[in-house]
Design a protein around this nucleic acid. Structure first.
Lengths: 103, 103
DNA sequence: ATTGTTTATCGCAAATGTACGATAGATATT
DNA sequence: AATATCTATCGTACATTTGCGATAAACAAT
């Protein structure tokens, strides 16, 4: 209990960078982001067809990207269209550019 | 067994980006990198003093950064000096810049 | 030789991540 | 109303990560 990461003990900026990095820390999620960028937007099913994963797993990865703010979902029942969340993508980009440039 | 991530099913570049992202996916490791950049190089003990973690945990995070190639260790018994691995840092930076710029 | 200093590693516990099948919910189509 | 399609979520299994104390290893200082 006492040893779980206490994010409040780190500067908010460091926590943010780490959070974005975590969202990008799986090849499937990199692949999803790149696919979305390439095609602008696409249905969940399209991504399932692209990846070597079951539908449930893809859905889970999409949720993580969505929770991190990097992706947004547009309901088009019964389908769901996904695309990169532009503003947040810019924010993430700025965090990483700053992190790598200062360093 | 059948469900662990098969990195060979993803393009090498996507795997690389994900690996670097993983190495940067914890605030302590972001803090370590920034501290090393700020001070050029420093002893393990200096980093232990900076972070809200036990010595064993810091050592573990340093190992992960070292395994990812982002950091290198210089033995100065009984101390160990750490610094950012410049070439690999550049490589990581290029991966991320490319990833964010293309996207 | 003994002691102190520094860091890596071992062993453990708890939390989190990854993957899947099954199923539920929502809405089109028939 | 019944059926088909699509996606999210539940439950489960196993792997990995995170954290710590204890200890080992390597050397310096006494």
């Amino acid at each position: 209990m006492a040893y779980i990461t206490k994010t409040e003990e780190y500067p908010a900026r460091q926590v943010k960078v780490a959070q974005f990095a975590k969202a990008l820390s799986h090849p499937a999620r990199i692949a999803i982001i790149e696919h979305l960028h390439q095609y602008g937007e696409c249905f969940c099913g399209d991504i399932v067809d692209e990846l070597p994963l079951a539908q449930a797993s893809v859905s889970q990865h999409l949720k993580e990207l969505k929770d991190a703010g990097l992706v947004e979902a547009i309901e088009m029942p019964p389908k769901v269209k996904y695309r990169v969340h532009r503003e947040n993508w810019k924010i993430a980009k700025d965090y990483f550019c700053h992190f790598f440039d200062e360093n």
